[in-house]
Write a protein that binds this DNA or RNA. Structure first.
Length: 423
RNA sequence: GUGGUCAUAGCUCAACAGGUAGAGCACCAGGUUGUGAUCCUGGCGGUUGGGGGUUCAAGUCCCCUUGGCCACCCCA
């Protein structure tokens, strides 16, 4: 056992898995940049107050926050999510609207880790501030949908709901409270304490005794104001126009208190664990104001990288891809020639690696094979005295050839431009 | 935070009812006097997560501790 290991819920992402992570964020960035979103790079640390605005009834704020006092007596927290930071940034810089941004990076929540749930976890997401249009809701959801499609994921279920305007939501919460109060002690103990803090969340309970009360609970749709109902109808109509399959789930409430009106969640069909939420989001029209900015509508989503990748594993899509090398230089004359040749190849824009420590030819050829390189470039005493190099194909049965050292770069440049074009 | 379960070589696992640790893969070296991916041979590698206890004897039983996983909770 090593002297040190990662602390709970933290882990190293090693190659080749890390390459897949980067490709994941690259594809995400490409997807949303084509829709007019620009990247916002915001701090991992914020004033604690930025996050307490998320809502004091959410566990994310009350018990999962990593916070500390810094040397200047400021109360600082590691971000548990990014939406609040985006709104803080908007309130601080007052960019012109619509402000369409995306982000990717780590977030921190102090929870008990398990598969698909870590204390440091990666999310990608987008946020749009300053637009009330329900067709923006459609665009936002559709971009997530498109991203899943680009990864190759097929077994993803989209569920949506509307929490109504703040007043609708408040009336609904009271109705729920009254409903569950009737149940009295028949309700599970945990749900009874949840009921005091946040009646909406009782709908999330998976405990058996609660189920029949959840079944018979009032429906949010009955509390929608005409405006909220119209907004939601437009969202559904837009989704249908794009032929994106979705399901309206009246019991979907989501965890963060700032949500208003449209909310949605993507669930992985193949993930039968409790951590099946691949991503989710919704409208949070009051959040910028709560952070000291002007009254501004907002909507966005966040997608969990870990869980999405787990779903990809289950579907056998978007696997790690081995790094591609054009050449691996085997030099059994001490290594100085390999130093020159790899530098030349790399300088010409080719991908080249080499063996070290002047190991035996057999050992270096094994490395060459394992490296995934297309060709081995072999330098021995004969080649040095003749001023040549041996080029041996490693992926085909073609014969190796001997060419002049001076022709090496030209040979490879030609071969790779006419050869495998992976783009 | 609560409950359950597990922890043996770098990885995946084995070791009858307590008797002093083994395989496959990986890695290294040879078989092939310059040439990998196959095959054969050999080698490296573990104070059995850590600490304490019971016993003549503990990977195996008991307690504590650390960590993983699962469920609750919550969410990505």
């Amino acid at each position: 056992m090593p002297a040190f290991q990662t602390s709970p819920g933290m882990r190293d992402i090693l190659p080749p898995e890390s390459e897949r992570w980067r490709r994941f964020t690259d594809i995400f960035a490409d997807t949303v940049e084509r829709a007019g979103y620009g990247e916002l790079i915001s701090p991992l640390l914020e004033d604690l107050g930025v996050f307490t605005r998320i809502g004091d009834a959410t566990d994310v704020v009350t018990k999962e926050m990593y916070d500390f006092i810094d040397k200047g007596d400021r109360h600082i927290a590691l971000r548990p999510e990014v939406t609040a930071s985006v709104c803080r940034s908007f309130a601080q810089h007052r960019p012109t609207t619509p402000w369409k941004v995306f982000y990717s990076g780590p977030n921190f929540r102090y929870e008990r880790p398990q598969r698909g749930r870590y204390r440091q976890f990666e999310q990608v997401g987008i946020e749009v501030l300053g637009v009330d249009d329900p067709l923006l809701d459609v665009e936002v959801i559709a971009l997530a949908w498109e991203f899943y499609a680009r990864l190759g994921l097929r077994q993803v279920n989209l569920i949506i709901n509307s929490l109504g305007e703040p007043d609708d939501r408040a009336r609904y919460v009271e109705a729920l409270r009254a409903h569950f109060d009737q149940a009295g002690s028949a309700l599970s103990e945990q749900s009874r304490s949840t009921l005091i803090r946040n009646p909406l969340r009782v709908l999330d309970s998976k405990r058996e005794p609660d189920q029949r009360f959840i079944e018979s609970a009032p429906q949010i749709a009955d509390f929608h104001s005409p405006e909220a109902a119209e907004h939601f109808e437009s969202v559904c109509a837009g989704m249908s126009a794009l032929h994106i399959p979705f399901e309206v789930e009246p019991k979907l409430v989501r965890g963060l208190d700032y949500y208003r009106r449209t909310i949605f969640e993507f669930q992985g069909e193949t993930l039968n664990s409790a951590q099946n939420a691949l991503g989710g989001g919704g409208r949070y029209d009051g959040l910028v104001e709560a952070l000291g900015g002007p009254s501004t509508p907002g909507i966005g989503f966040a997608l969990g990288v870990d869980r999405t990748l787990l779903a990809c594993d289950d579907e056998g899509v978007f696997g790690p891809e081995p790094t591609e090398l054009d050449a691996f230089v085997v030099d059994v004359t001490g290594g100085l020639h390999a130093t020159e040749i790899t530098a030349d190849l790399r300088g010409a824009g080719l991908a080249a690696d080499r063996g070290y420590d002047n190991r035996s030819m057999k050992a270096q050829m094994k490395l060459a094979n394992r490296s995934g390189a297309q060709f081995a470039v072999i330098i021995g005493d004969d080649e040095v005295s003749a001023g040549t190099a041996v080029v041996k194909p490693l992926r085909t049965d073609d014969e190796q050839i001997t060419i002049a050292r001076s022709d090496l770069i030209a040979h490879f440049s030609q071969d790779t431009t006419t050869g495998t074009d992976s783009s």
